[in-house]
């Protein structure tokens, strides 16, 4: 059994990693050729040097980097992520708003790619070497080696531009007031980005499942199950599913970073107002507080996926649970 002690250990390691990530992100941004002051007041500002110095003083820009980091970290811990320069609003409210839009997109694509990839992987694995299996393998390998934005553009140009079945982008029809946007509108706008992200994420889980199924079908316990008279269908339900569902779910959880990366690109292609597009905007606008906030949140997101995967990994296999004390 995964003990309380090891869970605490995993969480502790993740927290330390998070702190390291925050330091790294901070160092990158501080050393980047971005001047927060210029970003804030604009390059063509006619503000006097005195006024500039005053703002810099107020923000603590003259202080040493470690001092600034500690100051920032202290604010973060008290829930203050600062103000976004691009959006002129608190970073936390932007992240909340954008992240919830992205979460819907990622959750849908995550589940769809998981379920479809798992099912396709099982069928391909059972028919290893057959036509279906070879097509699936080819498809997955091509997918895995083609960039997300390219797939996104392809889908966009076929289904939105040529066929005109779906809107070009955004989360709602252009020019409609927020209050008038219906659920139908939202779903309609979500379809293409979701399809793109699903297709991008499906390769890994499909190939993994396929490989696992083949391995399991060659194992001795399947041989014995067949000797007991089990039909192939029963074999799959009783033995194959049992042996791969949890590892597959675990893999899905550990792919949060790929999911996040794919999401950012898919959003940019479809101008979907989520955390991905906000990141691009923040980077282009030299929006340091927003960039730092987003990097923390995305790290937290990826870590929580890994954390769940780690915990599941301990549950997956009774042999891992060790000892004989769980009857």
């Amino acid at each position: 059994m995964l003990t309380a002690k090891s869970t605490v250990g995993i969480v502790g390691r993740m927290l330390i990693l998070l702190v390291l990530i925050s330091i790294l992100a901070f160092m990158l941004v501080v050393n980047a050729p971005i001047d927060p002051l210029t970003s804030y007041i604009g390059a063509e500002s006619t503000l006097s040097q005195d006024a500039r110095d005053e703002i810099a003083e107020h923000w603590g820009l003259n202080k040493s980097a470690p001092e600034r980091y500690l100051n920032w970290a202290k604010n973060i811990l008290s829930g203050d992520f600062g103000m976004s320069i691009t959006y002129k609003r608190p970073v936390i409210s932007i992240i909340r708003e954008r992240f919830s839009a992205s979460i819907i997109l990622m959750a849908l694509a995550w589940m769809l790619s998981g379920i479809l990839g798992f099912a396709i992987g099982i069928i391909a694995g059972l028919r290893r070497g057959g036509v279906f299996d070879r097509l699936v393998k080819l498809f997955c390998l091509v997918l895995q080696s083609s960039p997300t934005f390219w797939i996104g553009l392809l889908i966009l140009s076929v289904f939105a531009v040529s066929l005109g079945w779906f809107p070009l982008g955004m989360a709602a029809p252009m020019g409609k007031l927020a209050a008038e946007v219906t659920l139908g509108d939202r779903i309609y706008h979500l379809i293409l980005p979701t399809v793109t992200l699903t297709i991008v994420s499906i390769g890994k889980i499909t190939l993994y499942t396929r490989q696992k199924v083949t391995e399991i079908m060659r194992s001795d316990f399947i041989l014995f199950a067949r000797a007991r008279g089990l039909s192939t269908r029963k074999l799959v339900w009783q033995h194959v599913m049992r042996n791969i569902s949890l590892p597959a779910v675990t893999l899905q959880f550990s792919s949060f970073s790929e999911l996040f990366g794919g999401m950012a690109l898919a959003e940019t292609v479809f101008s979907y107002p989520g955390i991905g597009t906000a990141t691009t905007a923040a980077a282009l606008g030299g929006d340091v507080p927003l960039l730092l906030g987003i990097s923390l949140i995305s790290a937290l997101f990826v870590f929580s996926g890994n954390l769940i995967a780690n915990i599941l990994y301990g549950v997956v296999d009774p042999r891992v649970k060790g000892g004989g004390n769980y009857v």
Partner: peptide, 11 residues
């Protein structure tokens, strides 16, 4: 069967 390998470890 010849060995314990012939049993599904998860069942």
């Amino acid at each position: 069967p010849q060995s314990v390998e012939y049993l599904d470890p998860l069942m």
